[in-house]
Amino acid sequence: MKIIQKSILLIIALAIFGLNYFLEDNVDGYVLRVIINCGIGMILAMSLNLINGCAGQFSLGHAGFMGVGAYASALITTVLTLSPFFKTDLGVGCAILTGGLAAAVAGYLVGLPSLRLRGDYLAIVTLGFGEIIRICFLNFEQVGGARGLPGIPRVANFFWVYLWVVVTFVALLRLLRSSYGRAILSVRENEIAAESMGINIAHYKIVAFVISSFFAGIAGGLFAHFQSFIDPNSFVFNKSVEVVIMVVIGGMGSLSGAMLGGIIVTLLPELLRAFDNYRMVIFPLILIILMLVRPRGIFGHKEIWELFRKKASS
């Protein structure tokens, strides 16, 4: 069992590596960009799913964490000219990891109010934190202020992004299938019962925020080193909303659903490009209709493969 799992993971990693060269040679630049953006969207959606779907909290500030990761990693590779090492693939990888850690610290700080607040209140506080983070970038001239930060080494390609997609997926799935994951889920299900069964609910809310922000920070770092340019406008409130929509479409609590949501929300505006300006009107309409006709998202709490299993057995 264990060996099978490990070899599957290795094969997937190799496949991504191979696919990287195939795509770079055979697919046009626009399509590849969209594919990579889908990957970043998936990481964001899976990470937010931990807070909004699994821990039952509601964060509306995910773009802020993404921004922290993007700026922190770009700071290392671009602004602070520490060593040429940070221009190499490996160096950028380290920088992105640092960005993730910085976002995790931010997640800890934002997670603290979640101990006292719930529902709409928490949503609005996380929104406030996200905006404050963005306003700080705006006023921080060392990272370009409102003009943004250009010249970030363009290192994050298909391979790096999708490697992180797999890492995020495996890490979160393993977390959820463990005692820690059950503890997080129990907080969503019933806080009072959870604490009566010995679960320190405050602790696990924070844990959810920290882990989630870490991956959001990674997504931000990848985004920065893929676009090679970031500005505070990349991390506005609407970006947070976009990630929430990804999670909601897929089904709150479903990891594979979140991945699908990430793809749909990234692809849809591209597919609706023919409608030009109207796509940004159609998009929220789809969201409203989805809430009216399928309020639990496409998969609900279930994972995609569980749907098939259920059908097979019955």
């Binding site: 709409d120 949503a123 909303v241 929430v244 909601v248 998009f283 929220p284 309409l285 969201l287 809430m291």
Partner: peptide, 10 residues
């Protein structure tokens, strides 16, 4: 809440 956000974006 999500519907409200959707209406707002719309």
């Amino acid at each position: 809440l999500i519907t409200a956000i959707g209406v707002s974006l719309f």
